Amino acid sequence: MTGYLTTHVLDTARGLPAAGMRIRLYRLDGDRREALADMTTNADGRTDTPILPATAFAPGDYELVFEAGAYLRAAKAPDGFLDLIPLRFRMEEAAHYHVPLLLSPFGYSTYRGS
Rank of each mutant, 00 (worst) to 15 (best):
M1E: 14
M1R: 12
T2N: 06
G3Y: 00
G3D: 05
L5K: 01
L5H: 04
L5G: 07
L5C: 08
L5A: 08
T6Q: 13
T6I: 15
T7K: 01
T7L: 13
V9D: 07
L10Q: 09
T12D: 11
A13S: 13
A13W: 05
A13C: 02
R14Y: 00
R14P: 01
G15V: 06
G15L: 07
G15C: 07
L16W: 04
P17I: 02
A18V: 07
A18M: 06
G20F: 07
M21Q: 09
I23C: 07
L25W: 04
Y26P: 00
Y26F: 14
R27D: 03
L28K: 06
L28M: 13
D29A: 15
G30S: 03
G30Y: 01
D31F: 05
D31C: 06
R32I: 09
R32C: 04
R33I: 05
E34L: 11
E34V: 08
L36Q: 09
L36K: 10
A37Y: 08
A37N: 13
A37M: 11
D38R: 01
D38S: 12
D38H: 03
M39I: 02
M39N: 05
M39T: 12
T41C: 03
T41L: 03
N42D: 15
A43V: 13
A43K: 10
D44G: 07
D44T: 09
T47A: 11
T47F: 01
D48A: 13
D48W: 02
T49Q: 14
T49D: 12
I51T: 11
L52F: 04
A54S: 15
A54I: 04
A54Y: 06
A54L: 03
A54R: 12
A56L: 12
A56Y: 04
A56R: 14
F57P: 01
A58C: 12
A58H: 09
P59Y: 02
P59C: 05
G60I: 10
D61S: 14
E63P: 03
L64D: 11
L64R: 11
L64C: 08
V65W: 02
V65R: 07
E67G: 04
A68M: 03
G69V: 08
Y71S: 04
Y71I: 09
R73C: 03
A74R: 15
A75H: 05
A75P: 00
A75C: 09
K76L: 13
K76I: 04
K76R: 15
F81I: 15
D83K: 10
D83P: 02
L84S: 14
L84R: 14
I85W: 04
I85Y: 06
P86K: 07
P86C: 11
L87S: 05
L87E: 06
L87A: 07
R88L: 02
F89R: 06
F89G: 09
F89P: 10
F89N: 10
F89I: 09
R90P: 00
R90H: 09
M91I: 07
E92F: 08
E93M: 11
E93W: 10
E93H: 13
A94T: 11
A94G: 12
A95I: 02
A95P: 00
A95R: 14
A95S: 06
H96A: 10
Y97E: 05
V99Y: 08
L101N: 10
L102R: 13
S104E: 15
P105M: 10
P105G: 11
P105F: 08
G107Q: 13
Y108D: 04
Y108K: 01
S109C: 09
T110Q: 03
T110N: 07
T110D: 00
Y111V: 06
R112D: 00
R112I: 01
G113K: 11
S114V: 11
